[in-house]
């Protein structure tokens, strides 16, 4: 932990896709820092580069250029990046991810889905987290159900529990309510806000739902691959 509480520092990140002869600058020189315990919401029109950017911030994708430090450690920079194994280590140490499509495993029960990350990596005491999180998220009565037997809002709660089971520092959420109706979206929003306030979880979220984005203490608008703080 750095003294300033800085957990993420990005400088001039770019991501260029080439489609035939055409070069698409999906992320175009983004610099930003995020402190521990912040709730940052990325907004902006479709295709503006939100997903591309947060995937790079979350070590799911490599930038074409620029630098990224996480928890005081250089991840990308100077034209080189960590290898796949080291990236995996950073991911499982620092991040939990949730997505629009939940990605639960349909042959496993709710409880097993949440416990799944522990099959590969477990921080000390992580076993107790499974039930604690499911209770915290109001899913204790669904623990032995299969994903097919619960609602979309409930699936996203399960996905959140799964993302948090190894006590990450940062929760990365790309359109977490994109597949949910207004009421379920609000519920998920409240859960995220509570996790941020009570547990001090750093949250990086993408959403074009303004109500949801308003929950974040900090909003960043993306346009044509560039980031504008509002």
């Amino acid at each position: 932990m750095t003294e300033s509480g800085m957990v993420l520092a990005a400088r001039e990140l770019t991501k260029v896709y080439t489609r035939g002869s055409e070069a698409i600058r999906a992320v175009d020189g983004v610099s930003l820092t995020i402190r521990r315990g912040e709730f940052v919401a990325f907004m902006g029109p479709s295709g503006s580069g939100k997903t591309t950017l947060v995937n790079i911030l979350g070590c799911l994708d490599n930038p074409t250029g620029g630098e990224l430090d996480l928890a005081g450690r250089s991840i990308f920079g100077g034209g080189k990046s960590l290898g796949e194994r080291d990236l995996t280590r950073v991911r499982r140490e620092l991040f939990g991810y949730i997505f629009q499509n939940f990605y639960l495993i349909h042959t496993l029960t709710v409880r097993e889905n949440v416990a799944l990350p522990l099959a590969f990596y477990r921080k000390p005491g992580a076993e107790e987290e499974v039930e604690r999180l499911l209770k915290l998220l109001g899913m204790e009565h669904r623990m032995d159900h299969l994903p097919g037997q619960i609602s979309g809002g409930e699936m996203q709660r399960v996905a959140i529990a799964r993302a948090l089971v190894n006590r990450p520092e940062i929760l990365l959420a790309d359109e977490p309510t994109g597949n949910l109706d207004t009421r379920r979206s609000e519920e998920i929003g409240e859960i995220l806000q509570e996790l941020n306030r009570n547990a001090g979880l750093t949250i990086i979220m993408v959403s074009h739902n303004p109500d949801l984005a308003r929950l974040g203490g900090r909003r960043i608008e993306m346009r044509d691959g560039q980031a504008y703080e509002s």
Binding site: L60, Y97, A119
Partner: peptide, 16 residues
Amino acid sequence: VQEIGILKTMGAMPGD
């Protein structure tokens, strides 16, 4: 493939 990708975001190493 998608599911395996998700396992990787959960911290599964290529070896896992």
